[in-house]
Design a protein around this nucleic acid. Structure first.
Lengths: 214, 214
DNA sequence: TGAGAATAGATAGTGATAGTATCCGTTTAT
DNA sequence: ATAAACGGATACTATCACTATCTATTCTCA
């Protein structure tokens, strides 16, 4: 297919597709002539995935590019690619986000992980994420330890167990990565939205504030 | 205290404080002279809260301003103020985010909420949030209904129950709003980070790489 | 076959966001 | 008395994610 159809099928403006091509987020189509290239269904899928990551997930094009580069690197195993994608989709990779490292809190988090018995890479970005949250809490005068995270850890444990359990072996790299990205990105949004709604519900039934029932 | 000390205590550059004053995110200090004002601890607290919302939560200064305006409006009850804050902190209010309304999915979400028996305002932004997630899933070829959200709803239900339960009656408006904002913003980050870590853990123990699927 | 649309690729411009920097006249501390 | 700090206003900057325009082909179809 040609660019106009690609734009129509993926619902992305032509100018934006050209921009993504320039930025290396989308591979060039197979050239038919000096000014004509042929795009495939894989291009449509890739575009849809980019839009999910940016529009639903709020991730920067830089994070998207990391995923794209990992997928495109034929030397890497599927396992490595998924690891790279997971890494690129760390909450800190979001637009406008920066995580200041908090070394003291980081050690507390590492201990917490060990206590939980979770098998997690030492360089997982989410560890710093958690340390930053702890540091923020302390900066706000809440003198708390990582144990306040325990109920969240338990909830996360059950959610993730189900998520990982329902992963079916995908045929292609692209499919596997797409499944992982969608699961991570859109269900994160689902979880967050449902937390807000549940807070509102509990506020309402408790007759307590914190809810908005206009 | 004067501006330099305020900047030091809140760890925010003087130029940025001036910017926040201009934007109406921070109230002016009580004037001592034509070019001298006196700032209080409340100013320090307010600044820290702004930084948590922007740096930890990734919310725009526009959302912050909504909260600030609600808090500053003496005619509103604490209940209304907390409702407005909750509204301003909806996931969609995040930097660079926009939610396209999805009317068909929105109705499915409303039905889902009714099935759950959750008491949630009809205009809660998180409903559209959820509808957008469902629309995204469908746009990606996943032909799913809102029932795929059920495990997440159950997890969110338990988390929120605990959260709302631990919100004790705060003395001042500012305190109550601060507690709500911190709870919503930093524990959201905590939950999201822990989900990533739990996914990694379950992937590791399952011998499967980092995946998740609906 | 020839007009007009579409295409690839390059360069430059836009709008929103979140600050930063500079200047000015005033005031305060030494 | 003079140098530093202050409040306030204006202007500038950086980043991000596009968007628009331009040129030189090439395709489409009447």
């Amino acid at each position: 297919m040609k660019m106009a159809e690609l734009a129509r099928r993926a619902d992305v403006p032509v100018a934006t597709i050209k921009f993504y091509l320039r930025e290396g987020l989308l591979t060039r189509g197979s050239p038919r002539a000096r000014n004509q290239a042929d795009y495939s269904d894989a291009h449509v899928e890739r575009l849809r995935l980019i839009r999910v990551m940016t529009e639903v997930g709020g991730f920067s094009l830089g994070s998207v590019k990391e995923v794209v580069i990992a997928v495109g690197d034929e030397r890497r195993s599927l396992h490595e690619v998924l690891g790279a994608a997971h890494h690129a989709l760390s909450p800190a990779a979001r637009r406008g986000d920066r995580v200041a490292p908090a070394p003291g809190e980081r050690r507390a988090i590492d201990d917490f992980m060990a206590e939980l018995g979770w098998e997690v890479a030492a360089d997982a970005p989410a560890r710093d994420e958690l340390a930053a949250a702890l540091a923020a809490l302390r900066g706000l005068g809440r003198d708390v330890g990582p144990q306040v995270f325990l109920p969240y850890a338990q909830a996360a444990y059950h959610i993730a167990e189900r998520e990982v359990g329902t992963v079916t072996g995908r045929s292609s790299r692209d499919d596997a990565v797409a499944a992982m990205v969608i699961g991570t990105v859109v269900f994160e949004r689902v979880l967050v939205a449902l937390r807000r709604l549940a807070q509102e519900h509990h506020s309402a039934i408790a007759g307590q504030p914190c809810g908005n029932r206009e």
